[in-house]
Amino acid sequence: MWASTSNAGGLTFQRPDKRAVEQDPQAVRVWHEESRPAIRAQAKEGAAVCRALPVRLSS
């Protein structure tokens, strides 16, 4: 996650929390058991895997 800094006027890397407060245990289980293995299998077959992270910029 990138955040604007007031002293430098640029962007600096900010470390995210280890776990979201609103984390859904069922959704995490589905990701680890179903979604992630399917993505890894597609990547091994040559598919491009892109990661998009939500970013919020503030002034």
Rank of each mutant, 00 (worst) to 15 (best):
W2P: 06
W2G: 04
W2F: 12
W2R: 09
S4A: 13
S4E: 06
S4D: 01
S4V: 10
T5H: 11
T5E: 10
S6V: 13
S6N: 08
S6T: 12
S6E: 13
N7L: 11
N7C: 07
N7Q: 13
A8G: 15
A8L: 15
A8C: 13
G9W: 02
G9D: 05
G10W: 14
G10N: 14
L11E: 00
L11P: 04
T12W: 02
T12R: 14
T12P: 04
F13D: 04
F13Q: 13
F13S: 04
Q14C: 05
Q14M: 09
Q14V: 14
R15H: 08
R15P: 02
P16C: 08
D17N: 05
D17T: 07
D17Q: 09
K18I: 03
R19K: 11
R19I: 09
R19C: 07
R19Q: 12
A20R: 08
A20L: 14
A20I: 04
A20G: 01
A20Q: 06
A20F: 02
A20D: 05
V21T: 14
V21K: 14
E22V: 01
E22Q: 05
Q23F: 00
Q23P: 03
Q23H: 03
Q23T: 13
D24K: 02
D24Q: 02
D24E: 04
P25N: 01
P25K: 01
P25S: 03
Q26A: 10
Q26I: 01
A27F: 03
A27M: 00
V28L: 08
V28K: 10
R29E: 02
R29T: 11
V30I: 08
W31S: 02
H32F: 11
H32Y: 09
E33M: 10
E33H: 12
E34Q: 15
E34H: 08
S35H: 14
S35G: 15
S35R: 12
R36H: 13
R36L: 15
I39L: 08
I39H: 00
I39Q: 03
A41M: 10
A41Q: 15
A41L: 13
Q42V: 01
Q42R: 14
Q42E: 15
A43Y: 09
A43F: 06
A43Q: 15
A43N: 07
K44N: 11
K44C: 07
K44W: 07
E45I: 00
E45V: 05
G46Y: 00
A47E: 03
A47D: 01
A48P: 02
A48M: 10
V49Y: 01
V49S: 00
V49L: 11
C50K: 08
C50S: 07
R51I: 07
A52L: 10
L53K: 10
P54S: 06
P54V: 07
P54E: 05
V55R: 09
R56I: 13
R56C: 04
R56F: 12
L57M: 13
S58H: 13
S58R: 15
S59H: 12
S59N: 12
